[in-house]
């Protein structure tokens, strides 16, 4: 009886040590939750979620501080993806954070009205505006995320929000209308 207890205890100690060592020595750095959430977020860096950027919002979701429906640029699609990742129920976007844009937009500076104050450059979260003090500024269209953060600081209101029209190379086929998708009674 005693020998059995001792033997099992000894085994438990040995395995415990081996496992403990292995857990430390062979630790695999998995994709942490924050990274996974951050990958789903659209990286607009607009701050509409009330966090200073997508990454802090991802951190807040991971910490359970923020809800998953605070990202208007991500839209309902983004909420669904977050819900899938986190095993939660999808919910509609929180209207307090804003509404989803119907189509992507970029900022456009009316260059002859720009006074070269650099305020928009400082506001741009992705350095998508070029210019210098007393010089005209302009937006690099390909880098602009359409966050609209440059618009409030502009003292002369020379920045427009321009929708990004699909071109021949970015156009997508519309989803075919399919009766089979309607509820059974209607079909």
């Amino acid at each position: 009886m005693l020998s059995a207890v001792l033997a099992l205890t000894a085994l438990a100690v040995v395995f415990g040590l081996v496992l403990g060592f292995a857990a430390v020595r062979f630790k695999v750095e998995g994709d942490p939750l924050v990274e996974q959430i951050d990958k789903i977020l659209p990286q607009t860096q607009c701050g509409q979620c009330n966090y200073p950027g997508c990454r802090p919002y991802a951190q807040a979701i991971a910490d359970g501080e923020a809800d998953i429906n605070q990202c208007p640029p991500g839209g309902d699609e983004g909420v669904i993806k977050l819900a899938e990742l986190l095993g939660r129920e999808p919910k509609p976007l929180n209207p307090d954070n804003g509404v989803e844009k119907s189509m992507p937009t970029v900022a456009f500076i009316r260059e002859d009205e720009c006074i070269g104050c650099t305020l928009c450059i400082q506001a741009c979260p992705v350095d998508a505006i070029v210019g210098a003090r007393q010089q005209m500024h302009t937006v690099i269209v390909d880098e602009c995320t359409g966050c609209d953060l440059c618009i409030p600081p502009c003292p002369v209101d020379c920045i427009d929000v321009v929708p990004v029209e699909p071109t021949v190379s970015t156009w997508t086929w519309p989803k075919p209308i399919d009766v089979a998708e309607l509820p059974r009674e209607a079909a």
Binding site: L41, Q43, Q45, C54, R55, V126, E143, T145, W173, P176
Partner: peptide, 28 residues
């Protein structure tokens, strides 16, 4: 038509992802 739709959606998604990655990098 469904397959064409799916193909262009996948391409659009890839474009968006590339853009998001670039925006993340620039923001960081």
């Amino acid at each position: 038509q469904h397959y064409r739709f799916a193909k262009t959606e996948i391409w659009a998604e890839e474009r968006e992802k590339r853009k998001a990655d670039a925006a993340r990098e620039r923001h960081e």
